[in-house]
């Protein structure tokens, strides 16, 4: 029994090492001068610790601007997506109106359809609206998200009818019930879907790649992609940029780790 447990630890630690290794390789490369990059056999540690790679990133591309753009798009995207999903999920879960089932089934079906199927006509429509290369053009076409509507509806369904009824007896309007009864009782579900929305918006790639033309409104993933394709493939600088893109996310993750894991479990079990 004991040796078996030892084997478990060995396997876990080995796979953990393999998992973390790319991060270490990234960190160490970010501090290497050009002369340390292509030596054979590869150097594990830099011979001299070189901090200029990080400042070079800011000279090569408007990195801070990309960060701000990404934060802006993410903030607006998350708030709007979660907001309209809550609005839609409430009547779909708890009210009676014609065509309710049809709307629900439609939302459910959209979850299975990859974005690429509708991508080209969506681009035409956005061009027609003159939204190409604008924040509007990046955000609005991606706001409809079937998953968050369905997921919130599941949560709203679980609220006991009594809570709603007593509010109704007090003469609350439907809007009041939504704000004072439904939302406070489903905080867990709403924060889960917000976290999910944050992750999706922060890493949005395919659509921004199509819609953004100018460097001014490039988001972080798009900026990194162009640093790779337009730059001279200087990997120490690319790694420095990657470190700066990854570390803040890791810090957020470390603070909210419990919440992240719970969110994933929730959606996995409920979905």
């Amino acid at each position: 029994m004991k040796t078996k447990n030892k084997l478990t630890y060995v396997i876990l630690i080995l796979s953990l090492g393999a998992l973390v290794y790319p991060f270490i390789w990234m960190m160490l490369t970010a501090f290497k001068p050009d002369s340390d990059l292509y030596v054979y056999p590869p150097l594990f540690l830099p011979r001299t610790w070189h901090f200029e790679n990080f400042t070079r990133v800011f000279e090569l591309i408007p990195f801070a601007r990309y960060y701000m753009n990404n934060a802006f798009v993410t903030a607006i995207g998350v708030v709007c997506q979660v907001g309209i999903s809550i609005l839609a999920a409430y009547p779909l879960a708890r009210l009676r109106f014609p065509l309710k089932n049809a709307i629900f089934t439609f939302v459910l079906l959209t979850m299975l359809m990859p974005f690429v199927v509708t991508m080209i006509p969506t681009f035409m429509i956005v061009a027609e609206f003159r939204w190409v290369d604008t924040y509007k053009g990046i955000i609005i076409p991606l706001l409809f998200n079937g998953f968050s509507i369905i997921f919130l509806r599941q949560f709203f369904l679980a609220i006991p009818k009594d809570l709603e009824d007593s509010a109704k007896l007090d003469g609350c309007s439907y809007l009041r019930i939504l704000i004072n009864v439904i939302i406070p009782n489903t905080k867990e579900g709403i924060s889960t879907i917000t976290l999910f929305a944050f992750l999706t918006w922060w890493r949005q790639y395919l659509w921004p790649l199509i819609v953004i033309n100018s460097t001014k409104i490039r988001t972080l993933p798009i900026g990194l992609k162009y640093l790779l394709s337009d730059g001279g493939k200087e990997y120490n600088i690319l790694m420095a940029a990657s470190v700066m893109a990854i570390i803040p996310v890791i810090i957020v993750y470390m603070i909210l780790e419990k919440q992240f894991i719970k969110s994933i479990t929730f959606t996995g079990i409920k979905g």
């Binding site: 390789w25 890493r203 993933p221 790779l228 690319l238 940029a241 890791i250 993750y253």
Partner: peptide
């Protein structure tokens, strides 16, 4: 949780 583009660049290296 880490961004896909950054992770891809790391693995490209």
């Amino acid at each position: 949780v880490i961004p896909m583009v950054a992770a891809s660049i790391v693995w490209l290296w």
